[in-house]
C-alpha cells in the first residue's frame, strides 16, 4: 500500500488531492506513517518502526493502523504497491 503519487503532502502532514480539491489534516503519527508510505515502505516495516519508537500496545496499534489504511483507501488516497 502506498500513497498515490498525485497526492500533495507538505511537511506539516497536510494532504491535498488535486483531482478532487479535497484536503486532509493528519496528526503527527499519521504524518509519519504517510511519509513512510510515500517512500513505498511495506506496512510491516512501518509497524515495526512505530512500535520501536512509541510506547504503544501492538494489538491496539495494529487495529488503528488497519483503520487508518482503510480510511486512506476510502478517500482514494492510496493504491497498491506495484
Amino acid at each position: 500500500m502506498k500513497i498515490k503519487p498525485t497526492i500533495a503532502i507538505n511537511d506539516n502532514g497536510f494532504l491535498f488531492d488535486p483531482s478532487t480539491g479535497e484536503s486532509y489534516t493528519t496528526n503527527p503519527v499519521a504524518r509519519e506513517i504517510i511519509f513512510m508510505m510515500k517512500q513505498n515502505l511495506p506496512i510491516d516495516h512501518i509497524k515495526t518502526n512505530i512500535l520501536e519508537r512509541y510506547d504503544v500496545d501492538e494489538v491496539v496499534f495494529e487495529k488503528n493502523l488497519i483503520d487508518f489504511i482503510a480510511m486512506l483507501q476510502h478517500f482514494n488516497l492510496s493504491e497498491e504497491l506495484a
Partner: peptide, 21 residues
Amino acid sequence: SMRKQYITDKGKAWGGITIND
C-alpha cells in the same frame, strides 16, 4: 475546473478550489 467547497442556501459557490480532473 473547480469544485465548490462551500455552497450557499441558493446553491451558489461561496468558496471553491481549482482541481486537476
